[in-house]
């Protein structure tokens, strides 16, 4: 990788100031996407601001009807959190399906969301659970946050501080893992809220994570897998590559959606 200046702030304010004062910055969270990208010289920031020493960015707590997770909280911490397991077990299950045990010891929820990889797991949870992403400047609804592959609403130098997940009535995540990379070839997160059902798909979309309104409406009327009969995923929005073509991905969306609904219904 190319050389860079390294910064190690210990507060959000210090990190934000560094970002404002420096040219060509990247924030370093768990580093499990950014560092490989820098090794390949696909990214070459002049300044790397390491968020790893900022204690206020870590932690998990229940706050009223929501679970609030600090941006630098690691996947393993979410997977093993008794608080998350009790309130939103689907979210803990999702975290446990990311990468492998060693990756989960480094990778962070904030890093995953900021990167918005089209095959990442957390974006689907954020959309389906109607999460709110808090930054050092504002609060952003998940529906406004994800704006296409590797693209988010984050401005230059804006730092995700925490993610707030409203606790649903029930939810589940069904993932068809790529057998080598463990990324989602297709992943479907479904959540039943008092106001209706939200269903989000990752891995499949050519424009990143997305919701399927027709499935949500059918499931809001009756939360059983059979409600999805006759509803197919939109083919024109599907990604197509050597791992799976658009038709196969669209088929998998239907299969994973049914599995997610069945799992959520089982509790």
């Amino acid at each position: 990788m190319y050389a860079f200046e390294y910064h190690r702030p210990t507060s959000i304010r210090e990190a934000a100031n560094l970002a404002n004062q420096s040219e060509d910055i990247k924030f370093l969270a768990g580093g499990h996407t950014l560092l490989p990208t820098m090794k390949l010289r696909l990214a070459s920031p002049a300044n790397l601001i390491d968020l790893g020493q900022i204690a206020e960015l870590r932690g998990i707590e229940r706050s009223g009807d929501a679970i609030v997770i600090g941006a630098m909280t690691k996947h393993a911490e979410v997977a093993n959190s008794a608080v998350v397991r009790e309130a939103i077990p689907a979210l803990a299950n999702l975290a446990e399906l990311i990468g492998d045990p060693h990756v989960r010891n480094r990778g962070t929820i904030g890093g995953s969301i900021a990167n918005n990889d089209p095959s990442a797991d957390y974006p689907a949870a954020c959309l389906a659970l109607n999460a709110t992403i808090a930054t050092d400047k504002r609060r952003i609804a998940a529906d406004d946050f994800f704006q296409g592959i590797f693209t988010t609403a984050l401005g230059e130098g804006e730092i995700i501080t925490q993610i707030s997940f409203p606790i649903p009535l029930r939810a589940a995540y069904a993932k068809f893992r790529h057998p080598a990379s463990r990324y989602a070839l297709v992943g479907v997160f479904v959540a039943q809220h008092t106001g209706g059902v939200r269903l989000a798909v990752t891995g499949a979309g050519s424009n990143g994570v997305f919701r399927i309104a027709a499935m949500e409406e059918a499931l809001s009327r009756n939360f059983v897998a059979e409600s999805l009969d006759g509803i197919s995923a939109p083919m024109d929005e599907m990604n197509s590559d050597i791992h799976a073509d658009a038709a196969y991905r669209a088929h998998l969306v239907g299969v994973m959606a049914r599995r997610a609904v069945q799992a959520a219904a089982r509790g």
């Binding site: 390294y6 190690r8 370093l28 580093g31 390491d50 060693h102 480094r106």
Partner: peptide, 13 residues
């Protein structure tokens, strides 16, 4: 005390 992949951690981290 946690297992990590040292090829994807900077020494400074």
């Amino acid at each position: 005390g946690q297992a990590v992949k040292a090829c994807t951690v900077l020494a400074v981290q």
